[in-house]
Amino acid sequence: MSGSMSSYAVEIAGVSVRFRTKKRDVTALHDVTMHVEPGEFIAIVGPSGCGKSTLLKLASGLLAPSAGHVRLQGEDVTGARKDVGYVFQKAALLEWRTARKNILLQAEMRHMPARQARERTDELIAMTGLTGFEDAYPHELSGGMQQRVALCRALLHRPPVLLMDEPFGALDALTREQMNVELRRIWQETGTTVLLVTHSISEAVYLADRVVMITARPGTVAGTVDIELPAERDYGRTMSAPEFTDATRRIREHLGAAQAEVVGD
């Protein structure tokens, strides 16, 4: 099938990733197949070291598969892609630049028109609740605010696909809940396709349309759970909804069974 025939935002087909360490050969991922529809929010969960972050690197072109193929927006991924946004666990802001200038760093690197970049920055600052903190330096911002700046920076060029690698893992529980609510709202406003890697099953269920479960190394797809929750999700009511409880149970069962199969082998 040619790349132009694919209508998926992200397509990973029969992908394996192998690499050599000083002591042995390691298979990080084995025969992984998954796809993401345009505008869909997919969460990826699994044990530490199972290759979740590797999947994001494949989608962005930062890593090439040992077997299989990866497509983004219908095109074969053959190198680093400039049309994605990437948010990491740490905000990685430049301490000598204000919040606004940290966001605009993306524009400078991409040589975006200055006026367009300023207008887009103002729009994102308002969207993420950073109004009033535009001129604050990173050390003057809370962890949650720093991640909002990082999110703005990743969204500045309107990427069709946003990759998020455990973006709220370092935040305290309350701030993490608040960021979950904000991210869900921002995703609905922007319509961007999102791939989120997380260790939190509850976070995955609250945020996503579908949750993809990855087994312990060598990582492969253990299963997928469709999230049967309304588009508008009040955090408190969602956490107590029977659909939420059922989804988290099924994910734990999938991962538990997959882990038992790996141990049994």
Rank of each mutant, 00 (worst) to 15 (best):
T54D: 07
T54S: 07
A126Y: 10
V77S: 11
A114T: 15
I214N: 03
G85H: 06
W187L: 04
S240A: 13
A154C: 00
L124W: 02
V87Y: 05
Q106G: 14
D246V: 12
Q259H: 08
L130R: 01
S200I: 07
E228S: 12
D172R: 00
V36L: 04
P65F: 00
V10E: 08
R158P: 13
D25L: 14
Q147Y: 05
R158N: 11
V194M: 11
L56V: 06
E253A: 15
L195T: 07
Q147D: 09
G236C: 07
G191N: 12
E134R: 08
T33Y: 00
S7K: 03
I44Y: 04
M179I: 06
I12Q: 06
E37M: 14
A107R: 01
T175H: 05
S66T: 14
I103T: 08
L155Q: 08
L124E: 13
E177T: 11
P218T: 02
E253S: 13
R250L: 11
G132A: 00
G51V: 05
G219C: 00
E166D: 04
F133V: 07
T224K: 11
Q89D: 03
G236I: 13
Q89I: 02
I214A: 08
K101Y: 04
K90R: 15
L93E: 06
V205G: 01
E134V: 01
G264T: 10
